[in-house]
Design a protein around this nucleic acid. Structure first.
Lengths: 202, 202, 202, 202
DNA sequence: CATGAATGAGCCTTCATTCAT
DNA sequence: TATGAATGAAGGCTCATTCAT
C-alpha cells in the first residue's frame, strides 16, 4: 500500500482535502471559507492541509487543476468516441459539459463562480488548465470550419469564448436554481441548438 | 437644492467613494481591497466611508446598483431611439453593451469579475438591478419572437442568459487583453451577428 | 498637544509600548513573550502595536536603539562633566554604567540577556547603537594611551571589548541575584579598580 | 558492552543528535531552530529525537551539560599538567579556553550566544555545569591569592565572573569576525596579560 | 460632517510532540 | 528502536469598524 504515493500528489488524504475544499468553496466561496472548515470538511487536522499544499491559495489552484484535468479528460474521451461531423461533436461537447457539471453540483458552483474572481487575483496564476479546455472548444470550431459546416468568416477564438460564456452563464443559472438533471438535458439541447445555428454556414 | 441630498444618496463625497471603490475593486478584487485603500483612492478618511455606507458589503452592493442603474438607463435611452425591428434593437443592445463597458475599463473588470463571486456570497443579496438588466434583454427577445423574427420555440429566458454569458465572457477576455476600442466595435459586430443567427427564425 | 509627534516616533503610546515590551522581555525573554502580553503590559490593544512598529522584531530592535540611545546620552553627558584624566573618566564610565543599569533592573536584564541572542538572529541587524556605545569606551582607552596613563601596547579595541564583557557579566550576576543598589557601588569600584590596573602603564 | 548504553546516555544516535543540535543552534539559535532541522542535520527521523530527549528544552540542556563537561574535563586535565604558580595556571586556563572554543566554531557560537538567553528562560534550569566551570576559575584565583600572587583584597567570586565575561565577549567578537586560529593565540596572550595585571598584587 | 488613531476579533500558518506501523 | 505522517494548540498579524475629537 505504501507504494507510489504523494509524488505528484495522490494520497488518500490529499484527495479528501481537495474534496473538502470543493464542498466548502462551493458553499461559501474561497474568501469566506476558513482553512479550518476545509480541514473539518475533509476530516483531517488543520495542519495536515499544509503537508499537501503550500497554502490556501495553492489549495485553490490545485483544486482547479485537478478538477479541470478531470473534466478535460472526460471531454476528450467522450469526443473521441463520437462518430459524426464536427457539428455533432460540438453538440456532444455541450451536452457533456452540461452533464458533467450538473452531476457535480459543487463542481459547478465552484467552477462557474470561482474561476474568474479567484483565479484572477491569486497572484500570477495564469490558469493553464482552463486554456486547455478552451483549446478543445476552439479546435472543434476550426474542424467545423474546415469541414465547411461552420462559417469560415467566424473568428474561431472569439466564438469559443462566446460559447463558453453562454454555457457557463446558463449553468450558473441552472445550478443556483437547483434544476434537476432532467431539465438539464433539455436545456442543453436548446442551447446547443441555438449556438450551432449561430455558427452554421448558410 | 442643497437639501434633498444624501437621501437617495448623492453627495459629492459619496460619489468619490464609489469611484474609488470601483477603481480599487477593478484592480484587486473585492476581498483583496482594504477599506483604507478605497478611502485613499477616494481622498477621504477611512471613517468617512461609514457615514455613507453601512459596511464594506453595503458599499459593494451600492456600487453594483449605482453602476447597473447607469448602464440600464443608458441602454434604455439608446434603445428607445432606435428605429427598426427587434433584431436591430438587439444588435444595438449588444453593440452598446460592449461600448459602455469597454469605455469604462474599470467598470468592465468590476462587473464581469465581481458580479458573480461577490454578489453570490454577500449574504442574502439577490441583485435586483442585474435582474432589471436581464429583463430588458429578455423583453427584446420576446419582442423579436412576436414580430416573427426570432424562433418562437426558443426559451426566451434561457436565451437571454446565454446571450448575457456570451457577451460577458467575450468582454472579460477583451478587457483583460487590453483591447483598444477599435477592436471592440468589430468584435461586437461579430458576436451579435453570431448570436442573432442563432436566434433567428428560419 | 497635537504638534510634532509620531514623526521619528515619540507619541505617548509608542513610549508605553516600549516600556511594556521592556518589562515583558526582561521577565520572559523575547521569544517567550507574546505580542498580546506586551500589549496588555502597555495597556493598548494588540493591533495598536502594529501602528508603531512593523512587527515583533522591529519592536525589539527599536527598543534596543531607544534604550541604548538613552544610555549613551547619559554616559556622554556625565563624562563631559568629569574633570580629570582618562583614568578618572574611565572609572566614572564604569561606575555610571553600573548605576544606570542597576537602577533600571528591567533594562539590565534586557540589555545583558537579549543583546546577544536576539540581535544576532534578528535578520540582518547590525546593532549600530551598540557600536556607538563601544566606540565611547574605545575612545576613552585611546585617550588614556595618549595621556600615557594606559599601556600603549594594548590593542585598544580588544580592551574595550574585554571591559564591556566583564562589566556585562558582572552586572548579569548582580541583576539576577537581585543585589541592592548599595552593593552595586562597591562592586563597581572593585571591578573598575581591577580593570584599570590591568590597563595601566607601569 | 552493547548493554550498558543509553543509561548515562551514549548511543551513537544520541551523539549524532547532539552534534546536529550544536550545528543547528550555532547557525540559527535555539528558538529559530526547528526540531525537524536538528533531525535532518543528525540524519535521524524527527520522532527519534524524542527517544533520547524529553523535549526540545531537554535537548538544549543536555547539550550544554555535555559540552561543558567536555570543556571542563579538558581544562582540568591540562591544568593538572601545568608546572608553575597560580599565575601560570591562570594564563594557561585563558589560553586553553580560547583554543577550545575557537577550534570548535559551532561550540563557540553556541556557548557564547545561547548560554545566557536560553538557559535563563528554559524553566527552572540552574546550569550546574556552568557553575562547575566558574568554580575552577574561582579556585585558580583563590590559589593565586594564597600564593600571594594575586591581591588579597579582591572579591574572588567577582573576579571570576569578570574574567569569564571578558573572555566570553572577546571570543564572541573573534568568533563572529571569523578570526583564524593564528589571531587567537595572540589575542589570548593580550587578554590574559591584561587580566593578570589587573589581578596581580603590587 | 469628517477624521484617523485605536480597537480586538478572527484567521492562516507553524511546529513541537505523538503514535501507528 | 526507528520512522515520519498527523495532530492541534498557539500566536503573529490584518483589517473592518468605532468613536473621541
Amino acid at each position: 500500500m505504501a507504494t507510489a504515493n504523494k509524488q505528484r500528489g495522490n494520497s488518500e488524504k490529499r484527495r479528501r482535502i481537495l474534496e473538502g475544499a470543493l464542498r466548502a468553496f462551493a458553499k461559501k466561496g474561497f474568501y469566506n471559507t476558513k482553512v479550518s472548515e476545509i480541514a473539518s470538511e475533509a476530516g483531517v487536522a488543520d495542519g495536515t492541509i499544509y503537508l499537501y499544499f503550500k497554502n490556501k491559495d495553492d489549495l485553490l489552484i490545485s483544486l482547479f487543476e485537478d478538477r479541470m484535468e478531470w473534466i478535460i479528460e472526460r471531454l476528450k474521451g467522450e469526443l473521441d468516441r463520437i462518430e459524426g461531423d464536427a457539428a455533432a461533436r460540438l453538440r456532444a461537447f455541450i451536452q457533456l459539459h452540461f452533464l458533467l457539471v450538473v452531476e457535480n453540483r459543487d463542481l459547478a458552483e465552484f467552477v462557474t463562480v470561482e474561476l474568474r474572481q479567484s483565479a484572477k487575483f491569486v497572484k500570477e496564476y495564469d490558469n493553464p488548465k482552463f486554456s486547455d479546455y478552451l483549446r478543445i472548444l476552439h479546435q472543434l470550431i476550426k474542424d467545423g470550419q474546415q469541414e465547411g459546416l461552420l462559417r469560415a468568416e467566424l473568428d474561431s477564438r472569439l466564438a469559443a469564448r462566446a460559447i463558453f460564456g453562454a454555457l457557463d452563464e446558463v449553468l450558473l443559472q441552472l445550478t443556483l436554481s437547483k434544476a434537476g438533471p432532467e431539465d438539464v438535458e433539455e436545456k442543453a439541447a436548446l442551447v446547443s441548438d441555438m449556438l450551432l445555428r449561430g455558427l452554421a454556414s448558410d
